[in-house]
């Protein structure tokens, strides 16, 4: 569906005004054509919410937009609760998100999901892993626009949940970290000169402080979860600062504007965190994904 839509709406007549980063609509582009609207609606409803999502917003957006992402992640996890081994694997990645510009500020909301089986070279135990991130960010433009550069500084609130279930363990067979963080975000975008609509964006996000929740030991089978009774899953929740919990996410993206309302982006992200407590956990994920964005 995406490919069809892109083919239809790509226009050579789209031009750019580099001074204010806005697209100037060409004649051929039918911004309000009826069936384009239908295609957009179909896109919106065909990319269901369960697909998690990714994506930082495209740097040159002007209004509310939605995006969906698909890709893959190569991830490595060291979980000292259950092993000294480093478990790794390639898993699919999905994302959805939205963004909205207000003046020189930008609001973003993203959800991403990746998960699947991880393994370690000489261990027969497999790990079923799920990693979900939900984030909201607000980015302010800093300094004056200088040619093709757009620099932004912002803050983000994020929720990360990584759960791991070990397939041949009994009773104590699961571990997780769930943390809610306040983050600082730095983003730089560069609009490549020319009439081709290409841009490159680099972003760095790092946690400042977090509220972390994790089990005391691997999760025991919960009792009474079905009827609201007691649960034997002792967990520790704590307020954590760097370096007890460090979460860093960097993203490098290559954007291509297809039309006034559509863009695609190829991104590489490195999402890593370390919980430096008793039963240390390190997780690092290299992610490559393609994002399709539509503006309203």
């Amino acid at each position: 569906m995406i490919n069809i839509n892109i083919r239809i709406l790509i226009s050579d007549n789209v031009k750019y005004d580099y001074n204010d980063y806005k697209l100037i609509q060409g004649k051929v582009l039918k911004r309000n054509c009826g069936w384009c609207f239908v295609v957009k609606l179909v896109l919106l409803f065909l990319f269901p919410i369960p697909l998690s999502v990714v994506s930082q917003s495209f740097s040159k957006s002007t209004g509310p937009g939605l995006n969906v992402s698909m890709g893959a992640a190569f991830s490595q996890i060291s979980d000292r609760q259950f092993s000294s081994q480093v478990y790794s694997g390639i898993t699919p990645l999905f994302g959805v998100g939205g963004q909205y510009d207000v003046g020189s500020g930008k609001h973003e909301f993203n959800i991403t999901f990746t998960g699947g089986n991880l393994s370690a070279g000489n261990s027969s135990t497999r790990v079923k892993w799920q990693y979900v991130t939900v984030s909201y960010a607000y980015l302010m433009q800093i300094g004056n626009r200088d040619g093709s550069w757009d620099n932004r500084l912002g803050a983000a609130l994020s929720y990360n949940s990584s759960t791991r279930k070990y397939d041949d363990f009994i009773n104590l067979d699961e571990n997780y970290e769930k943390f809610f963080s306040a983050n600082a975000v730095l983003q730089t975008s560069y609009l490549i000169p020319g009439e081709n609509g290409w841009a490159v964006t680099g972003r760095l996000m790092t946690s400042l402080f977090s509220f972390l929740s994790r089990p005391v030991t691997g999760i025991n089978t919960p009792a009474e979860t079905g009827n609201g009774g007691d649960v034997n899953t002792e967990k520790v929740s704590s307020f954590t600062l760097i370096p007890e919990l460090v979460h860093v996410k960097t993203v490098l993206s290559l954007d291509k504007t297809l039309s006034v309302q559509q863009k695609i982006r190829l991104s590489y992200a490195w999402d890593a965190y370390k919980v430096d407590q008793e039963m240390q956990v390190i997780q690092a994920s290299h992610q490559i994904f393609l994002t399709y964005r539509i503006d309203f």
Binding site: V86, I192, V200, L204, T250, W270
Partner: peptide, 30 residues
């Protein structure tokens, strides 16, 4: 595009070095 790509390349290279360094700091070796 090639000319304009110079600062972009620098950005890529710089961030890549940072990323690789971070990966080493995490000590994910077997």
């Amino acid at each position: 595009c090639i000319i304009a790509g110079k600062p972009v390349s620098l950005l890529f290279i710089g961030l890549s070095i940072v990323l690789l360094s971070c990966e080493k700091v995490l000590d994910m070796s077997p």
